[in-house]
Lab assay of single mutants.
Amino acid sequence: GPGLTDLFKTEKAAVKKMAKAIMADPSKADDVYQKWADKGYTLTQLSDFLKSKTRGKYDRVYNGYMTYR
């Protein structure tokens, strides 16, 4: 089956995709945050998933999740 690194890459891609969806349409934020909360994502995990070469690119999404939880 898929190894943990593959799983991480898949999760990371999914999280980034959802983060971009929030940035494009902030009204989606609560739905996405709820999904992440259901998956039990911690802020540390989210921070790892949303690492970007562009500093602060996903800060709004991260901060939103922090206040959501």
Rank of each mutant, 00 (worst) to 15 (best):
K20S: 09
D6A: 06
K51M: 11
W36S: 00
E11C: 06
V61Y: 02
A29E: 06
Y33N: 01
F8E: 11
Y58G: 01
R69C: 15
F8W: 14
K53T: 10
Q34P: 04
V32I: 14
K9P: 10
G1T: 14
D30E: 12
N63K: 13
K51V: 11
G1S: 12
T10V: 09
I22P: 00
N63F: 14
E11S: 04
L7T: 14
L7R: 12
K39R: 10
D25F: 05
K12I: 06
A21S: 09
D6C: 14
M23V: 06
V61R: 00
M18S: 06
A14T: 09
P2N: 12
A24I: 10
A14I: 12
F49C: 04
G64I: 02
T5H: 12
T42R: 02
G1Y: 10
R69W: 09
G64L: 02
K53D: 12
E11N: 05
K39W: 09
A29W: 02
S47K: 14
K39E: 07
Q34I: 04
A13D: 07
R55F: 07
V15C: 05
R69D: 04
V32L: 04
D31M: 09
D31H: 12
P2Q: 13
Q34F: 06
D31Q: 11
K9Q: 11
Y62N: 03
Q45C: 06
T42E: 04
W36C: 01
T54V: 10
A24R: 14
S52G: 10
L43H: 04
L50A: 01
K35E: 14
G3V: 13
K39I: 11
R55Y: 10
D38W: 06
D31I: 10
D30S: 09
A24D: 12
A19T: 03
A19S: 03
G3M: 11
K20G: 06
R55P: 15
Y62W: 08
T10S: 11
G56Y: 06
K53W: 05
L7K: 14
V15T: 03
W36P: 00
D31Y: 12
Y58I: 02
S52W: 06
I22Q: 00
D25E: 06
A37C: 14
Y65D: 02
G3Q: 15
D38S: 11
G56S: 07
T42W: 02
T67N: 14
Q45K: 07
R69N: 07
Q34R: 14
S27A: 09
K16I: 15
P26L: 07
V32R: 01
K16Q: 11
A24Y: 08
L50K: 01
L46Y: 01
K35V: 12
K12E: 07
S47D: 07
A37Q: 08
S27D: 08
E11P: 03
K28G: 06
P2R: 09
Y62H: 03
T42M: 03
N63G: 06
Y65C: 01
F8R: 12
T5V: 11
A37H: 14
A29T: 04
E11Y: 03
T42A: 03
M66P: 02
K12H: 05
S47A: 14
I22M: 05
N63I: 15
K28V: 13
G1P: 10
L43F: 06
A29Q: 06
L50D: 00
D30H: 15
Q45H: 07
E11W: 04
G3K: 12
W36F: 03
T54C: 11
M23S: 03
V15M: 03
Y33C: 01
L50M: 03
M66S: 08
K53Y: 06
K35T: 10
T44Y: 09
N63E: 13
S47C: 12
K57M: 08
L4R: 10
D38T: 09
M18Y: 06
L43S: 07
G64C: 04
K39T: 07
A21T: 08
K16C: 06
A21R: 07
A21Y: 08
K53Q: 11
Y65T: 00
S27P: 03
P2M: 08
L43T: 06
K16Y: 04
Y58N: 02
R60S: 15
A21Q: 11
K16A: 04
D48S: 15
G1Q: 14
E11T: 07
L50C: 01
K57D: 05
A13Y: 07
T5L: 12
F49N: 01
L7D: 15
Y68M: 03
A19P: 01
T10H: 12
N63Y: 13
P2T: 12
G56Q: 05
T10F: 08
K16R: 15
P2A: 11
L4H: 12
A37K: 07
F8T: 10
K53P: 10
M66E: 14
M18P: 00
T67H: 14
A19W: 02
Y58M: 04
R55S: 11
V61D: 00
K57E: 10
A19E: 00
A19Q: 01
T44P: 10
D31A: 13
G64M: 03
R69A: 09
E11K: 04
